[in-house]
Amino acid sequence: MSSETQDTTPRGVSDGLWYAGLPVAALLWYALYSLLIPFSEWATTLFPVDRHSHTGEAIAFFIYDVPKVLLLLAAIVFVTGVLRSWFSPEKTRAILAGKREIAGYPLAAALGVLTPFCSCSSVPLFIGFVSAGIPLGVTFAFLIAGPMVGPVGLGLLYGLVGWKIATIYLVFGFTIATVAGFVLGKLGLERYLQDWVRELNAGPVGDLPEERLTFADRLRIGLEQMREIVGKVWIWVVVGISIGALIHGYVPEAMMLRIMGGEAWWSVPAAVAVGVPMYTNAAGVIPIVEVLLGKGAALGTTLAFMMSVIALSLPEMIILKQVLTYRLIAIFIAVVSAGILATGFLFNFIL
């Protein structure tokens, strides 16, 4: 298409309406996000169940988490779509190449540590990073660190076991995220991304030449990318969180106590195996950790369970399936599980 044709193509909404609509949309998004908790509590009361029963917990969790993750996904993909109009995949890769890419792993892990998201809430940022062409290993470092050593979990862990153990946990979690991201990045796994993600990275960011884009054009690009990505993954967000809600409402504490109450060598891998199919955030798993420690479970085993619950949850894997192939998900689980197992064994050995 020639530049003359591009200049005369009608664009529908005028630039002025885009500029005026952006702050309105941002305020609406913030209002909706801030009302999620009271809305979920109110909506749960409409069901003929006790709010504090297993079913009530599952319903409240589902009603809160689905719109939360979808709102986060929409906002993050929109913003990264706008930013991507300035930074093409080629430019992004160039910025993160060589030494800068090496620095990208701990920086991404540090960003994850500072981000108070659970695993499913971290997925939107992960998708945004991948779609922007940021190296896969760097995005994995963020995805691992975010739920595993976020500020909420660290704060609660500090109150439960003290600053020394909480600090050791932070160091181990940060190290796992950085090293696992580095390993995954060096394996050259980009070919195992879903086809539509690779095509998104390889394609142009808009119909107009990059240097001729107005800010309104960039907003249009962000909106189009949001529609494309959210349209592909929203159903899997709902499916994944549905499973997570059921598990969240029916946590098998008695079974976990039987598995993790002793210090047998197999207790650490057993705790990880039990934790992976479950789903809750750091705030939700800390009370379980407190019960397990109070019942005599080994600290390393308990922390390995905590890490696996919040870093390798089944709902997270279901959502990631829309971005990653099964082979890449399996590699991701294997690398992170190895780090979690090492952490559990070391904690049991030194404490």
Rank of each mutant, 00 (worst) to 15 (best):
L36M: 08
W18I: 02
W266A: 14
S308W: 06
Y64I: 01
V230H: 08
R220Q: 06
S242V: 01
V239K: 06
G203V: 04
G16P: 04
K321D: 01
F332I: 00
M226W: 11
G56A: 08
F47E: 04
W86C: 05
W234I: 00
L341P: 09
V24A: 15
G81R: 12
A31E: 04
F305R: 03
F174A: 12
L36T: 09
S267V: 13
L17Y: 13
V272S: 02
K186Q: 14
L312H: 02
L160N: 05
G153D: 01
L136G: 08
I168C: 12
G244N: 04
V183R: 07
P209H: 10
G231R: 09
M260R: 05
V272L: 12
E228I: 07
A202N: 14
V289W: 02
T9W: 08
S53H: 09
G284M: 03
V183T: 11
V161P: 01
I288G: 01
V149Q: 03
L143W: 05
A20E: 03
V113P: 01
M1L: 13
T325E: 08
F345W: 15
I350M: 13
A75Y: 06
I127L: 15
W163H: 12
V205M: 12
F126H: 10
Y33M: 13
P124Y: 03
L292D: 03
N201S: 08
W29R: 01
L257K: 05
I95P: 02
L213Q: 14
T325Y: 02
A60V: 00
V233L: 11
A177F: 01
S121I: 11
A97M: 04
V239M: 04
L324Y: 07
T302E: 03
T167L: 13
V233F: 07
V335T: 11
S88E: 10
G294T: 00
L346M: 12
D65V: 10
T45K: 14
Y105E: 08
E253G: 00
G206M: 02
S122V: 04
A141D: 05
A245W: 00
G284H: 03
G249A: 06
S40P: 05
A20D: 01
F61R: 06
S34M: 12
L154D: 01
V274F: 15
A283Y: 12
Q194P: 10
L17V: 13
Y105A: 06
Y33E: 09
M317Y: 10
V230T: 15
Q6V: 04
V289G: 03
V171P: 05
A311V: 03
I176V: 13
I333E: 07
S337V: 15
T44G: 04
H54A: 14
I235L: 14
V289S: 04
V13L: 15
I288Y: 03
L83I: 15
I286Y: 02
Y30C: 12
P135Q: 10
V205S: 13
T9E: 13
A166L: 02
L184P: 00
I127N: 01
I134F: 09
W236I: 00
E316Y: 06
